[in-house]
Design a protein around this nucleic acid. Sequence first.
DNA 1: GTTAGTTGCTACACGAATGTAGCAACTTCG
DNA 2: CGAAGTTGCTACATTCGTGTAGCAACTAAC
Lengths: 206, 206
Amino acid sequence: MRDDTERTPGPGRARRADAERTVRAILAAAERVLSQEPGATMERIAAEAGVARTTVHRRFATREDLVSSLTVLAAQQLEAAVLAGRPESAPPLVALHEVTANVLRIKRTWSFAMGVHSEHPEVMRVHTDTRARCVALFRRARDAGAVRSDVDPDWASRVYYGLIQAAAEDLAEEPTPAELDAAAARVVDTLFTGVGAGGGTPHRSG
Amino acid sequence: MRDDTERTPGPGRARRADAERTVRAILAAAERVLSQEPGATMERIAAEAGVARTTVHRRFATREDLVSSLTVLAAQQLEAAVLAGRPESAPPLVALHEVTANVLRIKRTWSFAMGVHSEHPEVMRVHTDTRARCVALFRRARDAGAVRSDVDPDWASRVYYGLIQAAAEDLAEEPTPAELDAAAARVVDTLFTGVGAGGGTPHRSG
DNA sequence: GTTAGTTGCTACACGAATGTAGCAACTTCG
DNA sequence: CGAAGTTGCTACATTCGTGTAGCAACTAAC
């Protein structure tokens, strides 16, 4: 456990409701360790979580269980981040900015879990739903005249994913809200206007 | 070996110059297998290559050796693909299109190897050089007036990488030259003009 | 035909990681 | 205080992957 304010009193120490706390600690530790070393052992993860390896096995019978739970948790976080941006009700560009900032934070926090191609039904559902919400958002943006009519919303979504990936790479480990906003703004700006100077289509009125 | 025109006559068959052929077959098989299952065993790779596991170990002492060789091979292919686009002499937009098409093909063929964060000096050199070439290309494009002057070439490179990633995802396994050209054109177009409707940036009106 | 080079196959050694079991210690709750 | 719940620790079994060695068979070159 990184948080040293949580002291471990010695062998056999336990408070009645520690189970859930331990589970969360293990999941967080697994994310930290696996994001840097995807093949890390249970031993390594347990050490990072500050618990014994046997305790990890008590909560997650197999390694597969652990990774699976991790992907589910990340997926839920992702869904919450997306929904918090009100992609279906807020003005498209506002929603896009909010969603982007939220997702960048989550993606930074759960980079390993979000990169695993999980077969878990809950994870697949979230990915499908999120994808659909993303496409719908771009459709709304197009209907509102903000997106070129000849752009396929599906392609726009792919590009959007790619830009988020690019932006997530040069984010700090624990980005401030301001940094997240700046990154999100850059993503949205690039997504909409590109990097070109205009040529045939002048974008920036200036 | 997938190519069944290469018949395996039975135990102990060998032609004098089979060594290099075997090496290439193993590397290609490793790419195919590992791209779908990064943790696949040597046994699995050997089977895909159509050779015995011991033969793999004869050519690559350790698993690390194999993966390392694979990343080097992919890096060399990547460098060749980039250079073939004449990024330093051709007109920036022409070069960008050519490089994109070439890289998309390579990235499709060596997706696993290109995703490994190798510490091999040759791989690191290629990545550094390629990165520099990419940034230089965008600088040239900016000087030529094709890229907005307020866009950081480094950010442009990141975006470019992200777009290539996005485009590579919905490419066929063995894309035709026409498909590659279309994908490259879409990447370059999106990179330069974005997906936004022309005539102003709605979210940043001034 | 002889020789050199390559491969398949079997067998083995070794280590690492996984998963399980039992027990003692400790904390919280009633 | 007693009961329940949780954990650390040790020990163990088992499996899996890796890497090595030796031998027979086969092919191409000489």
